[in-house]
Design a protein around this nucleic acid. Structure first.
Lengths: 209, 209
DNA sequence: CGTAGCATGTGAAATGTTTCACAAAGATAG
DNA sequence: CTATCTTTGTGAAACATTTCACATGCTACG
């Protein structure tokens, strides 16, 4: 695979979408698909699809389209989904709880291997096959059993603190649900899911019509 | 306020961020703030801040900066946060549950007024001050007590169906947590929060370093 | 085997977004 | 009141992304 720098975030997100659609098509027994068909499913244009893919190679056959199966494999490879990732969940509140039970995590190779919380009422409780550990044990635990990804589901006030701690432990990717802007070193990737932001863009859209 | 068409989504998201920071500053008793200071807090540049604001007017004083209080009001107005929105939650599963209890909703003027589910074990149960209603009652309920926003927290298979139903009932904004791409008329706004997508962009970033 | 048709891959053009850089406005200090 | 300093608001430049359009290669069919 070509590994060019600077692929746009929007491109990566679309690739992830295409992958979802291709898996659908695969289940339906389709063997090939045109950029046009893929675009129609995803609400974009065929040129966009072809351009997105062209950053990574040329996977189609002129006059025919793309092999669904082949393209699924290619996209999994490009997105780095050919392996499993070990994930620590920091925070065992409502959202943490919901996420641990979300099948999408494990299904796609994201393996939650530990859960932490400061609330002594939760510590020690079995939780979907895992035991909630005291946040004090974070260093001990993650040294014994390292993870690649941390999901931060703490209150806003606590988020930067635990972020610093997991970064010190070598975590290079963070999925943040706390409603704050995290500061991390350049080599750490953060994705923030910020409910308030989504609601407010909806509000803006409702207002300006 | 100037209402120009075509403000970039990225601009609106930043405005929402600025608002959060300004509220922080306000609590700390700051009276004015420079674009530089606001940018530093938000990880962007002062030129970006000034450009974002300039789409809507000119709110600052040269040599001094922006009045924190005034800018808060302006941004709330721009984002349409001067009112409350009525929200229906469709789906009372784990994520729905977590969202209903999320204070950020009500705090920011998003009032959850009804919750629906198909699961008879949930229907009729009290739920954070609300009663879960049978999804069959959706039309009756939303006609009696209309909402502006629907939050969709159903399984993927059910999402398009309920979307069509709420759209038919006049809902113009949807926050979608189901892992699928919803199809709606042009005058309806959809924001999708897609966990799988976020995880896969993290995976991509981890792979390509 | 040749021709018609289809769909890719990709430079080039168009469009969109961010950054630069500076004139103008106001603040501050002496 | 003047000189100096700060910070805005904004065109213009730089950069990024999307769309266009078409040559090229492959398929299919007679």
């Amino acid at each position: 695979m070509l590994r060019m720098r600077k692929i746009a975030e929007s491109t990566v997100r679309r690739l992830s979408l295409y992958l979802r659609f291709l898996e659908e098509f695969e289940e339906q027994g389709m063997e090939t698909v045109s950029s046009e068909a893929l675009a129609a499913r995803g609400g974009t244009t065929s040129a966009q699809v072809r351009k997105d893919l062209s950053f990574f190679g040329s996977f189609g056959k002129r006059g025919l389209g793309y092999s669904v199966g082949e393209l699924v494999l290619k996209l999994r490879d490009i997105l780095g989904l050919g392996r499993t990732y070990r994930v620590a969940m920091i925070g065992a509140g409502k959202i943490g709880s919901a996420l641990v039970q979300y099948r999408g995590f494990r299904n796609r190779g994201f393996d939650i291997v530990s859960i932490f919380d400061t609330d002594q009422a939760k510590v020690g409780k079995g939780w979907n096959g895992l035991v909630v550990k005291d946040l004090k044990e974070l260093e001990t635990e993650l040294r014994r059993s390292p993870v690649e990804i941390a999901v931060i589901v703490t209150p806003g006030e606590a988020a930067q603190g635990v972020t610093d701690r997991v970064v010190a432990l070598g975590v290079k990717a963070i999925l943040n649900f706390a409603p704050i802007q995290l500061t991390v070193p350049d080599d750490v990737v953060v994705k923030t899911v910020n409910l308030a932001l989504e609601l407010e863009t909806l509000s803006y859209a409702l207002t300006n019509r």
